[in-house]
Design a protein around this nucleic acid. Sequence first.
DNA 1: CGCCCTGTTGACAAAGGTCAACTAGCGTGG
DNA 2: CCACGCTAGTTGACCTTTGTCAACAGGGCG
Lengths: 197, 197
Amino acid sequence: MGAGGFCPFVTQSYRAGDELYVEGDPVHHVWFVKQGTVVLSRRRSDERGDRVRTVRFAGGFIGIEALVSPVYIDTARVASGAVLCQAPIQGFEQWLGPKEMPARTALEASVQAMVADLPPRAAADGSAEQRVAEWLTHESQNTLQLPRRVIADLLGMRPETLSRALASLAARGAIAVTRTDLRIMDEQQLETIVRTG
Amino acid sequence: MGAGGFCPFVTQSYRAGDELYVEGDPVHHVWFVKQGTVVLSRRRSDERGDRVRTVRFAGGFIGIEALVSPVYIDTARVASGAVLCQAPIQGFEQWLGPKEMPARTALEASVQAMVADLPPRAAADGSAEQRVAEWLTHESQNTLQLPRRVIADLLGMRPETLSRALASLAARGAIAVTRTDLRIMDEQQLETIVRTG
DNA sequence: CGCCCTGTTGACAAAGGTCAACTAGCGTGG
DNA sequence: CCACGCTAGTTGACCTTTGTCAACAGGGCG
């Protein structure tokens, strides 16, 4: 029961394979898992089908990225028979209570962090060069000034491999690197490299 | 300001390299980042130093796993000069408001999911066999019945590689596998394999 | 000015991905 | 109820990628 004792959730049964939403869809609902398992997967950078990212069990929320993102960040599929409670975003937000409430602030920060952590970091997907290109296009702004050794960790590779990948991207003219500087020269080409290698 | 208008946070400046807490420490405080960057890292399974997992910027919370875990799940270090607000757990919980509040429920579920998602999945760390061993010891209970292809995704490897890793673990007597069944025979040995390969 | 640390480059080894062939369950339809 | 065919999983051979180890170079700081 939320503020004012109203509950926006509707309980419903699902069958294995049912798709709640697809990555990139505009957000519309949030679910709570009462029973069963829901599998969350994300597209591979090179469009060779999905890759399961994680699994949610009873007690978990699905699609909670709706709080901070205009679109869903994964595709959600019911793994086996499941019982879920569904609420439209607006009802969900109302249920949560006022935006200024501390718990809600913390929730949004936490979800924001979850969303931000995902994209390229999640796990090895694509070659080192592709991962570096993705990082450069999508989230290098904040992390560009961090030591290379740290960047390498974030991207799940060795410093040597990062160094080689950067050198290769530089050779292709997509970026300009020195050991103290890193500038993007051709965003377009980086995008291409992310997709095709 | 939390319930009753009280604020448990104390603002403080930190210098690059300052350590807020170490992975495994009993939780004691939660921080909010006002300015600067904090780096979160986790031990490698084979104890060869840390690996940076993610980075938090202004607006993020640090150590929020305190809500659902008795110990910190990473080591937090200030990357460059930073201004943080620190609150003891108890004050933080009080600030959040009553446990039954929807926003708080959602927050805890979200943090719980964050914590659960991390351990072995985070990124390639250790050999395929080590990652499988870790998965078997720490979180196979819930996911054991999922298709192998999904498990492979979660562990960041190909189904073929998972199959080989399982075969190898079976050859060493740590588990028993058929294509429909999977049982742990020697938990002890699995733990050893996680650490030493 | 020199030392130290971080990052770069090269040569090599090994882990895992890829492709292909094969097998065991399982469901479906005759 | 059995046989067939489909799919998930396994195994083998090969090859690419990345990790490893070592040597080296550039920058920053004392």
